[in-house]
Amino acid sequence: MVVRKSNVSARVESTLKRIVNESDFTHKDAYELGAKIIAKGTAEELLLAMNTDSDLEKKLKETEYEILEERKNQLERELKDM
């Protein structure tokens, strides 16, 4: 396996970052859990399960919508204050 030096967190979906921020886990915990899942060799199976779990997909979409709505409101406030 070739190790690439890059900023992984820049490629992580903002929705997933938000979920980590709102959980009891820190970013370090999230990376460690992810690394352990990859090391166990179950990451691919887990990703497939996550992508087919409609409840999880719905929760991710709801969270993504909330983030976008929050950002929209912030931009509207900034525009109003100009």
Rank of each mutant, 00 (worst) to 15 (best):
K59P: 00
T26L: 03
R77M: 15
L60T: 02
L46A: 06
D29G: 04
K80F: 14
K5C: 01
V20Y: 00
V12G: 01
T52W: 00
V3P: 02
I38F: 07
S9F: 07
S9G: 01
G34R: 03
D24V: 07
A35H: 09
R4A: 04
M82Q: 08
I38H: 11
D24Y: 08
M50N: 06
E62V: 10
R18P: 00
A10D: 09
K36P: 00
E76F: 13
L48G: 15
G41W: 04
V3W: 07
I19W: 01
T52M: 00
I19G: 00
M82S: 06
S9L: 11
T63G: 09
S54F: 03
H27I: 02
V8T: 05
E32Q: 12
L79S: 08
T15D: 09
E13A: 14
E22W: 04
L79M: 10
F25K: 03
L16E: 12
H27E: 13
K61D: 15
L56S: 03
Q74E: 14
R18F: 08
K17I: 05
K36H: 12
Q74H: 12
N7E: 02
R4I: 05
K36T: 11
S6Q: 02
D55Q: 12
S23Q: 07
E78M: 10
E62D: 15
G34K: 02
L60M: 10
K17S: 04
R11C: 05
K28P: 02
K40D: 10
N73R: 15
A39K: 14
T26R: 01
E70K: 15
V20C: 02
K5D: 02
M1S: 10
D53I: 01
A10H: 04
M1T: 08
V3F: 05
A35R: 08
E57S: 13
V12L: 11
K61S: 15
L75W: 05
K28F: 12
Q74T: 11
A30F: 11
T15H: 07
E13P: 07
G34T: 07
I37H: 00
I67K: 03
D29E: 13
L16T: 11
I38L: 13
I67F: 11
E32S: 11
L16F: 15
L68G: 09
L47S: 14
R4T: 03
I38D: 11
D55M: 06
T42M: 10
L46T: 05
L60R: 01
T42Q: 12
L48P: 00
R71N: 13
E66V: 12
M50T: 06
A30H: 04
E76D: 14
S9K: 05
V2S: 05
M82D: 06
D24L: 06
A49I: 01
S23A: 09
E64H: 13
E22M: 03
E69V: 13
R11L: 08
N21L: 08
V2Y: 04
E70V: 07
R18D: 12
K58Y: 10
N21A: 08
K80S: 15
Y31V: 09
V8Q: 02
N73I: 13
N7T: 00
I37Y: 02
S9H: 04
A39I: 04
D81A: 15
T42I: 10
K17Y: 03
E66M: 12
T42P: 00
V8L: 08
T52G: 01
K36F: 09
